[in-house]
Amino acid sequence: MITFTHVSKRYADGTVAIRDLSLTIPDGQLLVLLGSSGCGKTTLLRLINRLVEPTSGHISIDGTDTSTLNPVTLRRSIGYVLQGGGLLPHRTVLDNIALQSQLAGVRKSQARAIARRMMREVGLDPQLAHRYPSQLSGGQRQRVGVARALSVDSGILLMDEPFSALDPVIRHDLQDEVLRLHQNGTGVSAAAQDKPCTIVFVTHDINEALRLADRIVLLSPGAVIEQDGTPDDLLEHPANDFVRTFIEAGRPSPRLTGTKEHIS
């Protein structure tokens, strides 16, 4: 369980990214932080593994205040997926994935064995193991990034707009993958794999959010929670005009999906 208690974040330049936010994410939930760029959703995500430190307030994981933990140790125990995968260009696919386990102290040969398993887990052709990131397609690179994050055993996965740069078909495939991983659980050990994992997923794409989420938190600038609920809640009972406008702007409007002649 991840808990935010009265968290605020003001950057050095004076921008207030988050204003007094409290939020609880129960185990096994797939939570989507939704909002347009600059609303503070990425900051919120990065607070969880202390890539960003709060100005005030507390974040705790399973009851432990993260500020009492060593940030490096904390990050090694939480899977993190970035846009583009964030891969090291001078290391092979296999070594990129294995690196995560090696950081946790696993020996190289064993780390590679885990990496191979994770490649299968995310549907990567084993033949790609000795390729370099530059030799992969955007979708494959993103899968490597996911595979790397999966070799962490905590059952928490943070995903920061991982699929925004991909074309719709590939994005759709990868979204399926996320849904499957969420059900099967992540991690290396059998215990971690039995139960659904917790995923915090950041996106600006309402359709992606509706497709993936158990629960959507829609944010406006300053990380103000405009609505917190299931996809159905958002669609059927939008809390206010902000939510209504956000949904309408992102959903295919019936008028525009008509024939070409209709538009012109």
Binding site: L51, V72, S77, G86, L103
Partner: peptide, 20 residues
């Protein structure tokens, strides 16, 4: 973004420097 990914994976500053 690569440096950020290194931090996010839990590399120390030294490891980020040496490996990336």
């Amino acid at each position: 973004r690569i440096v950020d990914a290194c931090h996010a994976m839990g590399m120390t500053g030294w490891q980020t420097f040496r490996m990336a």
